[in-house]
C-alpha cells in the first residue's frame, strides 16, 4: 500500500511546541500565522468547554472567546509563557481561559454594583458551577478533533493509494456504527459490495484500515505531544478522560 503524508500545511497542530514558540515570539514574521493555526485548533475545544462545562449561552461563549483572544492570547507574553517545561499547552490554555472567565465575572459584578464602565461595554457572562461527574468537555472536544483529523488523513491515504475499498470498509464497518450510530452492514452485504474473494481478503482489508487509522491517530498526537513518551501519555490520558476517569493535569 502506498503511504502518503498529508501536506505540511494540513498538519495538526504541526510541531506543536514550535508553533507555540513562534506564536510567542514577538519578532517572528510568522507569529500571526502561527497564532491563527493555534487558535483554529483550540477554539472549538475552548468553546465546547464554555458551553458544556461553564454552561454559557452560545453567543456569550463567542463573546468570551473573542475577548480572551483579544485581551490575552494576542499578548505575546501570554503564549511565550506557555513554555514546554510547564506542561501541555492545552492545559495551560484551559487554565488561562478559566481565570479569564472568573475575571470577567468579577468585572461584571463590579459593574452591576457600581454601574457600567465609561466605555459602556458589558460582558454578559454568567457561568454556572461545573458538573464534576462528566468527562471534561474541553478534553472530549479535543479528542473529537484528534479523531476527526485522523479520519481525514486515513481517508486521504486510502484514496491516494488507490485503496478506496479500505476506506469504504472502514467507514461502513467502523466509523458509521461507532461514531454515527449507523447499523453495521451485514458481512455478506459488505463483501458483495466490495468484491472480496474470501473472508481472509475481507478481514485483511478491515485490519489494514484499522491499523492505518491507529497510525493516523498517533501521527496527529505526535504532532502536538512531541516525543514518543509524551504520545503514550497523551493517548492514555485521552482514554482516561473518555472513559470518565478525568484528566491528568500537570
Amino acid at each position: 500500500m502506498t503511504e502518503s503524508r498529508p501536506p505540511a500545511r494540513q498538519q495538526f497542530p504541526s510541531t506543536h511546541w514550535s508553533l507555540v514558540g513562534r506564536a510567542g515570539d514577538d519578532r517572528s514574521a510568522a507569529r500571526n500565522e502561527a497564532l491563527a493555526a493555534l487558535l483554529s485548533r483550540y477554539l472549538p475545544a475552548m468553546k465546547a468547554y464554555l458551553l458544556g462545562k461553564r454552561r454559557l449561552r452560545d453567543d456569550d461563549a463567542d463573546e468570551v472567546l473573542q475577548a480572551f483572544v483579544g485581551e490575552k492570547v494576542l499578548d505575546p507574553a501570554f503564549v511565550a509563557a506557555a513554555d514546554a517545561r510547564r506542561g501541555r499547552f492545552r492545559s495551560f490554555l484551559l487554565t488561562s481561559l478559566d481565570h479569564f472567565l472568573i475575571d470577567q465575572l468579577r468585572r461584571q459584578r463590579r459593574h452591576a454594583a457600581h454601574g457600567p464602565p465609561a466605555d459602556g461595554s458589558q460582558t454578559p457572562v454568567q457561568p454556572e458551577p461545573a458538573a464534576p461527574a462528566e468527562p471534561d468537555v474541553f478534553d472530549v472536544a479535543w479528542a473529537r478533533q484528534v479523531i476527526n483529523e485522523a479520519l481525514r488523513r486515513t481517508e486521504q491515504e486510502c484514496r491516494d493509494g488507490g485503496r478506496d475499498d479500505l476506506w469504504s470498509m472502514f467507514d461502513r464497518r467502523v466509523v458509521g456504527p461507532t461514531l454515527l450510530d449507523r447499523p453495521a452492514p451485514p458481512y455478506e452485504q459488505l463483501v458483495a459490495a466490495l468484491g472480496f474473494r474470501s473472508p481472509l481478503a475481507a478481514s485483511n482489508c478491515l485490519v489494514t484500515a484499522k491499523r492505518m487509522f491507529a497510525r493516523a491517530v498517533r501521527a496527529v498526537v505526535t504532532e502536538y505531544a512531541g516525543e514518543a513518551d509524551n504520545v503514550e501519555e497523551e493517548l492514555a490520558d485521552l482514554m482516561r478522560i473518555l472513559s470518565g476517569g478525568g484528566a491528568r493535569r500537570p
Partner: peptide, 12 residues
C-alpha cells in the same frame, strides 16, 4: 459522538 464512542475509536 459520545465519549465512550470516541474511546472505542482510540482503542481500535
Amino acid at each position: 459522538s459520545q465519549p465512550d464512542a470516541l474511546a472505542a475509536m482510540l482503542a481500535l
